[in-house]
């Protein structure tokens, strides 16, 4: 049973010409697969975890805290793990040349952040709640609000790029990307939880998004 979406998912139109058509081969558990890059403080600036402090002024939008724990397949925290995020601004516009959505850009919001998890595998970002935006996949198609996440896990085989969604978003039911995950429990794992405990009084709502980076060749029973 695989929880990941298939390559070919016709409801998401771009997969039609980009999904491989031949059966996938299997890599051995070789040295290249069982190791992976490690990142450190020199890869993350102090300001990189606060996306609201990267411009000259504060970005427009609803300030939020997004945090969570990064675990391996056995539930062990992954410490010192590089977490990269990118997202649209509050109006649903990316600071990217290709994005032609006629919503305003925000000169104070670049939309990219990164940090390292602490000793307990915990990461924390301060950002702006991203806006929903239209895309041309099908008539009247809108992406639910989301934040892109990138993690490396324990080895080359555990590399994960995914998206975090927000609870109660009515667009999830119509989103081919979210719906491409057949297992409901797995899909729901991409929806952050609103959390009063991490909500900062009179300042920002808190959302919790725990991530399990489970590599194919990770061995949960070893080195426990």
């Amino acid at each position: 049973m695989t929880l990941d979406p298939p390559y070919l998912y016709p409801d998401y139109r771009s997969t039609l010409t980009r999904a491989p058509s031949k059966p996938l081969l299997t890599l051995p558990a070789g040295a290249t697969e069982l190791s992976g890059p490690v990142f450190g403080e020199r890869h993350v600036g102090a300001a990189a975890a606060d996306l609201t402090r990267q411009g000259d002024g504060e970005p427009i939008g609803e300030r939020i805290v997004v945090h969570g724990r990064v675990l391996d397949a056995a539930g062990r925290p992954l410490a010192g793990q590089l977490v990269e995020i990118w997202q649209a601004n509050a109006a649903g516009r990316y600071a990217h040349d290709v994005d032609r959505h006629p919503a305003p850009l925000d000169p104070n919001f670049a939309g990219a952040g990164r940090c390292l998890t602490d000793g307990d595998g915990i990461y924390r970002f301060v950002t702006i709640k991203p806006g929903e935006y239209p895309w041309r996949n099908h008539p009247n198609a809108w992406r639910p609000a989301h934040i892109h996440f990138s993690l490396f896990g324990r080895s080359f085989m555990s590399r994960l790029v995914t998206q975090m969604y927000f609870p109660g978003d009515p667009l999830l039911a119509f989103d081919p990307m979210y719906q491409s995950i057949r297992d409901r429990k797995a899909a729901e794992a991409l929806v952050a939880t609103f959390e009063l405990a991490s909500t900062v009084e009179e300042w920002a709502l808190g959302y919790r998004f725990d991530i399990v980076v489970a590599g194919r060749y990770d061995t949960p029973t070893e080195e426990s």
Binding site: L3, D4, P5, Y12, S14, L71, A73, A74, G75, E84, I85, W86, Y94, A95, H96, V98, D99, A110, G111, A112, G113, R114, H148, S150, L160, V161, T162, Q163, M177, Y178, I181, D183, K185, A186, A187, A189, L190, I211, V212, V213, A214, P220, T221
Partner: peptide, 23 residues
């Protein structure tokens, strides 16, 4: 084992057309 731990491997989603912003 996953059931015992209540852990679900976080599934993949596309990096999308704007992946260069973050990478």
């Amino acid at each position: 084992e996953e059931d015992l731990l209540g852990l679900v491997a976080t599934p993949s989603q596309t990096a999308g057309p704007y992946l260069s912003i973050g990478t």
